[in-house]
Design a protein around this nucleic acid. Structure first.
Length: 760
RNA sequence: GCUGGAGUGGCGGAACUGGCAGACGCGCGAGACUCAAAAUCUCGUGGCCUGUAGAGGCCGUGAGGGUUCGACUCCCUCCUCCAGCACCA
């Protein structure tokens, strides 16, 4: 098993600390790592520190740069001038995924603004289809909700791209629709405000200036509005008409604020009767509403009395030759016809956008290219890597990338022509770092490659990955993308990096997630100081099952401390007597056991069965802790343990208890283990096996119900036959009293469990 | 709005495949030990009711209905909370 630890060490927190407190990011980061490592060590976690990695180490980030060059070679990394999300507080670009409700994911109260910049992108969309398809491989091992989120994020939809020719002009407006069956109900064609045709159409308009002013206002409004989804529909009518290629109608062309340039073709047909947004738009501007799909059941809809659009599939009406077809059949037929007549073609569209990785920040991986006036963008050759991040950079928190202000860094030589060149000053999104870090664990010291094929072939794919649900989309989608690129480069030979995924709940403080980016992490270190590492470990396990969110509170930690102390005293009290005695072990003879011995061994093995199941199947460690508490309580109830319990049997029970405790509270378990006279380490002892015969219960308590209500219990030997069990139930005096004078109509008997008598 | 998930005592939470609701712990109450306190130990602790109180009854898992001999668990409707997505055509 590989159980490593490493540090996702680049990124904004270090840089913000530098700006706020004047600390050097590297020193601040190394300091934090040392502190974290101290706490983890204090808790006794068994990480393999030989494999420790840190993403801000040049020996790590050089491979980010290496990967970037491979992507560049394959045209999977490219530069594009684009409108990007810009956080005025971070003064950097944010990926779409980092924009939360129109605000920065780190600064909820800071609206994101749009800015035009030359940016580096990774072409994740080239893998959109494969990322979607390969989720089939993850169905058995990943939580459904993560897959659903990724599926929605990729957002594949099948539709038709269809051409609406402008009347009296050469140009054609292309529209994307998933509902070609509603095309006879179109009342207009709507363009995104940024649509490339807009300037051209405005230029030849008579009221050009007025329209341009309106457009400016619309754009400004769109930017300000934090919640675009709820913004009011706005339109600007243009003095142009297009021809509906199916119906032949001429339709007006509008600019509409709710049409997105980035999705589809940046233009849509407006079908008010069958789309919510179009309905609102048409209502506001009094465009004609035409019903062309009727519900397959119920009353027919009238355009004049329509209160809400009918967005479901149905049966076509008023649709020329397609009237009478179902929506499904019409979509099929009309798509084919459009293709044949050369007016459109079927197309897949994705919501997923390419991954913008440029950051105008210091504390990240430098993007390894130079800009040469003669040769353009020139990659840094592999042998020149890593491009090192310079030290002693002044961080003011203002303006552009801090690296641009370091002349020694910026001034470079072109690797192609040898002339003067300017070094790229953008750094990479830290999600690049985390997209492949787990591969590096398999071969952390490799100096010629990010990792060797052999090491990865031995360890990968990951059997079990544990991460917060917060990473459901970003990190886990990027990692899957990286894996596929690595496969295509020939570095790995699997399609998916992670077979099984477990999503941990978050630890909350006052209702918000504790996270390093928020800096509100509390607890662990002080807890270990006050109560000791074992109590801290036990408490975090006991508080809740791991997939659930947990509001942090130290209420109840006393219980764990008390339990460990109680257990410690119990074992120590008997240790002297047991030190030189061998444990009864496998060889124990059931026939010679006293009542008390039998009871203790049974409970011990039943506990072992429960804990083993919790560990292996469910990861519900809170119930494991409870089971150990119960076993300890049983031992207390059976005091004095000197009486009727042979030392070898008691030692067996103690041994089992300590072996079960060891993964949760290793320090105290190890110490007690030694006190019991063991010489080898408990930590190197294998997990014990359940002894089924010892765990078995000879006497069972059977529940007796009358009409489903609990009325009594009876002790029987296990494995009793149905009819016998029924007789025993009826023979019980209390039950007899209940059914006196009534008829037993039916008896449901579940062997070894219950008898339910149906009585009238 | 769409898609997921959750809702159980004063609190954190158990109940695994439809079969004893509330394991375990916290808190609280009573008692033992003590001059006293802390620590420790013991007992009790969902609500309501009862004239056979060391017993028994009724109600109870967000609300209402249903399926079933039997429902925290399955189905339908609704409410609340959390998360993700959100003019994606």
């Amino acid at each position: 098993m590989l159980h490593p630890m490493g540090w996702d060490a680049f990124g904004l927190p270090a840089e913000n600390a530098a700006i706020q407190h004047g600390v050097e990011p590297r020193a601040w980061t190394l300091n934090n790592i040392a502190e974290f490592k101290r706490v983890l060590t204090r808790f006794g976690f068994s990480y393999d520190w030989r494999r420790e990695i840190s993403t801000c180490d040049p020996e790590y980030y050089r491979w980010n740069q290496w990967f970037f060059l491979r992507l560049l070679e394959r045209d999977l990394a490219y530069r594009k001038r684009s409108r990007v999300n810009w956080c005025p507080k971070c003064e950097t670009v944010l990926a779409n995924e980092q924009v939360v409700n129109g605000a920065c994911w780190r600064h909820e109260d800071t609206p994101v603004v749009q800015k035009e910049l030359e940016q580096w992108f990774l072409r994740i969309t080239a893998y959109a289809d494969e990322l979607l398809r390969d989720m089939a491989l993850l169905r058995s091992g990943w939580p459904e909700r993560v897959l659903v989120m990724q599926e929605n994020w990729i957002g594949k939809s099948r539709g038709v791209r269809i051409r609406f020719p402008l009347i009296g002009h050469e140009d054609v407006i292309e529209v994307f629709t998933t509902r070609i069956d509603t095309i006879y109900g179109a009342c207009a064609v709507l363009l995104a405000p940024e649509h490339p045709l807009v300037p051209k159409l405005l230029a030849t308009s008579r009221q050009r200036h007025e329209l341009e002013a309106q457009l400016q206002a619309m754009r400004r409004h769109a930017v300000r509005e934090a919640d675009l989804a709820t913004a009011e529909k706005q339109g600007i009518p243009l003095a142009y008409q297009v021809r509906n290629p199916f119906s032949g109608d001429s339709l007006p062309v509008w600019i509409a604020n709710f049409v997105l340039l980035e999705y589809g073709t940046g233009a849509v047909m407006c079908v008010p009767a069958h789309d919510q947004r179009d309905f609102e738009f048409a209502t506001k501007y009094q465009l004609p509403v035409r019903v062309v799909v009727q519900p397959s059941q119920g009353e027919a809809l009238e355009a004049t009395s329509l209160r809400a659009p009918m967005v479901d599939y149905g049966v076509l009406v008023n649709s020329g030759p397609y009237s009478g077809l179902s929506s499904e059949a019409a979509i099929e037929q009309m798509s084919r016809d459009a293709e044949q007549q050369g007016i459109g073609r079927s197309e897949m569209t994705y919501r997923l956008r390419d991954w913008g990785i440029s950051r105008q920040r210091y504390w990240g991986t430098p993007i390894p290219v130079v800009h040469c006036e003669r040769c353009g963008v020139v990659p840094v050759p592999d042998e020149e890597l890593p491009v090192l991040l310079p030290a002693n950079v002044s961080l003011t928190g203002r303006g552009q990338s801090p690296l641009a202000l370091v002349p020694e860094f910026v001034q470079a030589r072109c690797y192609r022509c040898g002339g003067a060149a300017r070094r790229e000053t953008d750094t990479m999104d830290t999600f690049v770092d985390s997209s492949w870090y787990f591969y590096r664990y398999t071969d952390p010291l490799n100096r010629t490659l990010p990792f060797s094929r052999e090491a990865v072939r031995y360890w990968f794919p990951i059997d079990q990955y544990i991460g917060g649900i917060t990473h459901a989309i970003l990190h886990l989608l990027y990692s899957r993308f990286f894996c596929k690129v690595m496969r295509d480069i020939g570095l790995v030979d699997h399609d998916e990096p992670i077979q099984r995924l477990f999503t941990q709940g978050m630890v909350l403080k006052g209702g918000v997630a504790m996270s390093k980016s928020r800096g509100n992490v509390v607890g662990a270190a002080e807890m270990a100081e006050t109560y000791g590492a074992d109590t801290g470990r036990l408490y975090t396990l006991f508080a809740a099952s791991p997939e659930k969110d947990l509001e942090w509170s130290e209420q109840g930690i006393e219980g764990c401390a008390r339990f460990l102390q109680r257990l410690f005293r119990l074992v120590v009290r008997h240790a002297g007597r047991l030190e030189h005695v061998p444990a009864a072990g496998r060889a124990v003879d059931l026939a010679t056991l006293s009542e008390k011995e039998r009871h203790l061994l049974r409970r011990a093995h039943q506990t072992l069965r429960r804990v083993t199941q919790d560990f292996e199947r469910r990861w519900h460690f809170n119930t494991s802790v409870a089971a150990l508490m119960e076993l300890t309580n049983t031992l207390h109830e059976q005091e004095p343990l000197e009486q009727d319990v042979r030392p070898s049997v008691l030692k067996e029970v103690f041994d089992l208890l300590l072996q079960m405790l060891a993964p949760m509270a290793p320090h105290i378990a190890e110490e007690l283990w030694e006190k019991l006279g063991h010489r080898e380490l408990l930590a190197s002892h294998p997990w014990p096996d359940v002894h089924p015969a010892l765990a078995e219960e000879e006497q069972l308590e059977i529940v007796i119900q009358i009409n489903g209500k609990l009325r009594g219990k009876v002790l029987v030997e296990s494995g009793l036959h149905e009819s016998e069990l029924r007789e025993r139930a009826l023979a019980d005096p209390r039950i007899a009293q209940f059914i006196a004078g009534k008829t037993v109509r039916k008896a449901i008997v579940i062997p070894d469990k219950l008898v339910n008598l149906v009585v009238s």
